[in-house]
Simulated assay, not measured.
Amino acid sequence: MQLLNINKQQYRERLNVVIIACIAGLTASSLVISQTLIHFIPSESGSHFHWNALGVVVSAGLLGMTLLKLKTHPKMKEVVYVWELKHALNLIYRKNRQLLEQAKLGNEQAMLALQFSYDGSRQLWQLDDNTITMDSLNRSQQQLDAWVNQYGVTLDITQYHSKILKSF
């Protein structure tokens, strides 16, 4: 995955549309499904919990399939990019301890993964206006920069790919 420049305002607008559409779609379809089931197959005990639960589960499945189909739509580009970035950062986070240990020893691939993580996190936090932990990120970046200078490594995050993580 490569980091892209994303228009923050456009991303926020499109994310809000996706969120509202998902909420509206999930609410409407779960009500329609559960009420249809209750109408055609009423419960003798008067409890329709199972039909309501089934309506929500089926609606969530339909919503998931719809999102997968719309994933390639041009208006979903920014939202899908952020979803994929979060996934890539999560994969790195799972290996963070090993990456830090190896970067400390001069492993260039570990440093590259950490640099991608720091740059991706910085972009993600700025897109989501979540700059509270930026100080922690800056301290981590300073430590990585010290290792890069110590070992004379040049990092190009365009060379990062998730297969690097398999060796850690």
Rank of each mutant, 00 (worst) to 15 (best):
S45K: 07
I33V: 07
I38K: 13
L68A: 13
L37S: 09
S34P: 02
I38E: 07
Q98E: 11
P42A: 07
K69H: 14
S45C: 05
V58P: 06
H50N: 01
Y93F: 11
V32D: 02
K86D: 10
H50L: 11
K69C: 08
G64T: 12
L91I: 04
F40R: 10
L37W: 03
N96D: 07
S45E: 01
V32C: 11
L89S: 07
V80E: 09
N96I: 12
L99M: 06
K69T: 15
M76Q: 12
R97C: 04
T66D: 07
Q35P: 01
G55V: 02
A53M: 12
W51Y: 05
S45P: 00
L63V: 08
L85E: 01
I33H: 11
K95A: 01
G64C: 04
L85Y: 02
G46C: 05
V57Q: 02
V32P: 04
E84W: 06
K77M: 10
S45Q: 00
Y93H: 12
H39S: 00
N96V: 05
I92D: 14
P42S: 08
L37T: 04
V56D: 00
G46M: 05
E84C: 02
W51V: 10
Q98W: 09
E84A: 08
R94D: 08
N90K: 11
T72A: 15
W83M: 08
H87N: 10
R94P: 00
V57W: 14
I38N: 02
H39W: 09
L85W: 10
A53R: 05
L91R: 15
T72R: 14
W83H: 04
Y93T: 11
K71Y: 13
V79R: 14
Y81M: 10
Q98V: 00
L54P: 07
A88M: 03
Y93K: 14
L54R: 00
L85S: 06
E44N: 09
W83S: 03
S47A: 05
S47K: 05
A88S: 11
I41D: 03
K95F: 01
V57K: 07
A88C: 10
M76H: 08
V56T: 04
A60W: 06
G55F: 01
P74K: 14
K69Y: 15
L99D: 09
W51I: 01
Q98R: 14
